[in-house]
Simulated assay, not measured.
Amino acid sequence: MQLQPILTVATKEFHDRIRNRWVLAVALVFAVFSLVITYFGGAQQGVVGFRSIEITIASLVSLVIYLIPLIALLLGFDAIVGERERGSLDLLLSMPITRLELLLGKYLGLATALTASMIGGFGVVIALLFGKIGARGLYHFAGFMFSSVLLGLAFLSIAVLLSVIARDRTRASGLAIAAWFFFVLVFDLLMLGLLVGTGGSIGGDAFTWLLLLNPADVFRILNVFSLDDVRTLYGLASIVPPALGNPLAMGAVMLVWIVAPLLLAQWRFKS
């Protein structure tokens, strides 16, 4: 495996997103939604305006869990199957580039575009709130941003895997939407149903390990345990043992969610 072909493909993918203004559009979406939630997230309690970095992060966690997986899946679902459908995949593979290099280049370019859009959007929030949150708040918000990037990269890996598996773009888009519904909406309902259906016999550590099967829940746990006030706002604080509040441990789990789908995609792409 050589680095130059990977960087060439990645640069092309990133420049394509810049030219079609995808990065700017997504950054604008993140900025607008983040600012609205930051200033109006407490309106239902009769409070408007910035309250604290803890409350802000707690509110933004819900936004990120719904929005970032959807954007990442829509960004990467046609990474491979789109080239195959356009007839350009065979042309690319006829050049001095391996399937692994092509796959990694596609992923790296899309990941760079996704990361740039998120940092740009959240960066607007930091710029506007810097005088109110101080150095400590900036540290916690930076951690939140980093975990958000990891979540986006995890779902981008899943999108690339689906793009390799699907036979056409229509099926790939359907699989991407189905994956979003499963991980963001259905999974937690299944866990709740399992907990209630078994009368609570499956709980404690067993229930916690099941939550690690969903990158969205890993992200939630990572941010719930990052701040004391945020733990209080989420019911997960009464379920998840403090051992999993270690940011390094949860970060490692997120890395597994990034790498594992890519390994599966490479295995499938080779066959």
Rank of each mutant, 00 (worst) to 15 (best):
A142W: 05
G87S: 11
L195M: 11
A176M: 04
F207M: 13
L91V: 14
L63F: 15
F144N: 03
V26T: 09
T115Y: 11
W180N: 02
A260S: 12
R167W: 10
G87L: 11
P241Y: 04
D78P: 02
G245Y: 00
F225P: 00
D168P: 11
V29K: 06
I239W: 04
N246S: 14
G200E: 05
L263S: 04
Y139S: 06
S52A: 13
V26K: 02
A216H: 03
V9T: 07
G203A: 15
Y107L: 11
S147D: 10
H140P: 00
A243D: 06
G87A: 12
T112R: 02
L102H: 06
F30E: 06
H140F: 13
I37F: 14
S94A: 14
D168V: 07
Y234K: 11
A127V: 15
I80M: 13
A43H: 09
L255W: 11
A178G: 15
A25N: 13
G137D: 09
G174E: 06
G200F: 05
L264Y: 04
A179H: 03
F181L: 15
D168T: 07
A216Q: 06
L108G: 01
Y39V: 10
V32F: 14
V224G: 00
V124H: 05
I202C: 06
G46W: 06
V26A: 03
N223F: 00
L67W: 01
V29T: 15
L129I: 05
G105P: 00
N246D: 14
S226G: 12
K106V: 01
L151E: 02
G193E: 02
R21M: 10
R86Y: 10
S59N: 14
L110H: 11
A166W: 06
A237Q: 09
F14R: 05
W267P: 00
R268G: 03
G134I: 08
A43M: 13
L63Y: 15
L255V: 15
S173L: 14
H15M: 10
L185I: 15
F269P: 00
